[in-house]
Write a protein that binds this DNA or RNA. Sequence first.
DNA 1: GGCACCGATACCCGGCGGGTATCGGTACGG
DNA 2: CCGTACCGATACCCGCCGGGTATCGGTGCC
Lengths: 276, 276
Amino acid sequence: METRELRYFVAVAEELHFGRAAQRLGIAQPPLSRAIGRLERRLGVTLFARNSRTVTLTAAGSVLLSEGRAALDAVEAAERRTRRAFENGPGLVFVTKAGASGELLAKLLDAYAAEPGSVPVDVLLCGPGEQERLLRDGRADAALLHRPFDSTTGFDVEELHTEGQVALLPAGHPLASSSQLRMAELAGLPLPRWPDREGRYPDGRGPAVRDHTQLLQLIALGRAAAVVPESVRGHLHDGLVTVPVPDAPRVTTVIAWPPHSRSRALGLLVATATRL
Amino acid sequence: METRELRYFVAVAEELHFGRAAQRLGIAQPPLSRAIGRLERRLGVTLFARNSRTVTLTAAGSVLLSEGRAALDAVEAAERRTRRAFENGPGLVFVTKAGASGELLAKLLDAYAAEPGSVPVDVLLCGPGEQERLLRDGRADAALLHRPFDSTTGFDVEELHTEGQVALLPAGHPLASSSQLRMAELAGLPLPRWPDREGRYPDGRGPAVRDHTQLLQLIALGRAAAVVPESVRGHLHDGLVTVPVPDAPRVTTVIAWPPHSRSRALGLLVATATRL
DNA sequence: GGCACCGATACCCGGCGGGTATCGGTACGG
DNA sequence: CCGTACCGATACCCGCCGGGTATCGGTGCC
């Protein structure tokens, strides 16, 4: 199976429409029909149930869609990592959520830089959920992820740190003077909505936010409240109050990296991280 | 990057010889040279340092070799899983080491079969180390692996069971009457040698074995001794004695599956396993 | 310095990817 | 109930690319 065929298949499977898929791919519809037909013939598998009005995925087609996406990601990652290795020489790209685990990251980078045999590390800060994609498609070599918020599926991980969560409230909020709170008591607050993997926001009442800076500002303005890991207490503006929430899920910070990329430099980074 | 180019590259990178690589690929040498050249030009990366006598991988080339192998595995897995989905209908292939975790497996399969919505499960028994490959290249959907013996890198896992290890000795062996043993005391015994990933055996004195049946027989004959998980005590022949070895590493049985393959059937199997 | 080895280059052919034109079946509206 | 619009499949043509053979050119060894 060639990657071109796979890309064509994924386009049709996503559009469920040969014409639109062809347009998206920048080719005409007939070659696309032929390519899919040939792919089906070579695999010996019917991928689409189609009559001249509708196109549907078969069960086997659904399998190829999810597996094929992963395979295309892997090919793209190989390409990107190769280019990076050539252009930037040795060196790692480390990605983490903006505004999270700042101290841990600083300690890690210092400790790693002090190791003999370490290589330069570029740090990439990005919005929540983006790290996964960067790690998967080869733009980054390692990431700090926070379970249970981030999915670590498909990555190798080492746990670094576990912490509880606190409610983050504007000073003067009625609940701000409590010594601790329960999740149930926070149900009515304007909790923020984060974008999903496609950058879209779920429905709901709370304000839509893109990063922690926005969130902190909105809380200071009294327009939001949030439940966040304890460690954000380190760098808070005035006007914000934290209250422990013992029954919130504990947050585990992990260092994650793509499997099969066990370069010496990455191995050293992981080893350094686990020793912290 | 097309998978053909990637396959060509991997062949050359492994052989470090265009002629032999071409022969392995079943094509002539000139098209192979051209293909590699075009790949390098398109990537904008020098993959091989070559003069007319020797071929060497550049740093970028090494990256593409390991990443490319993983990508090719992913493509192959996609293909195989699609074919399986088409030919065998729904249904899972479960792979485990022959002779290990037998009871756990039986309980799991019974419990899963009793679940509403479960699908037929084919069980594949194979030699140690083979499971990883079967899971990675799409011939299997899930596996029972045993840490720290099996590598779980690149798989999603759930821990099922942890146990200590015992020494397995022929009855009448001088150490067989001890109430417990330490690893150091076992150093002089003829411990078996298992094949590595390529099916080759490491150097050493102990007998080369391929599966647990062979091992048990050799121990009964007094030609071997081994350190094995406690659970093998369940189905032992006569003439074998077990002695606890408290300082041997504990063995964790995990259920492992490839990421991105979260079908309903597989999800149910994993859920059932974690409830055992 | 001659020779053997090996990757690159030159040149040719056939198949495949891509295009346009058109067919054939299906659902919808009048 | 028929016309029509829509959409995937088919027919046919072209140009490029993957593959082949022949040969060149550089390198290390005897």
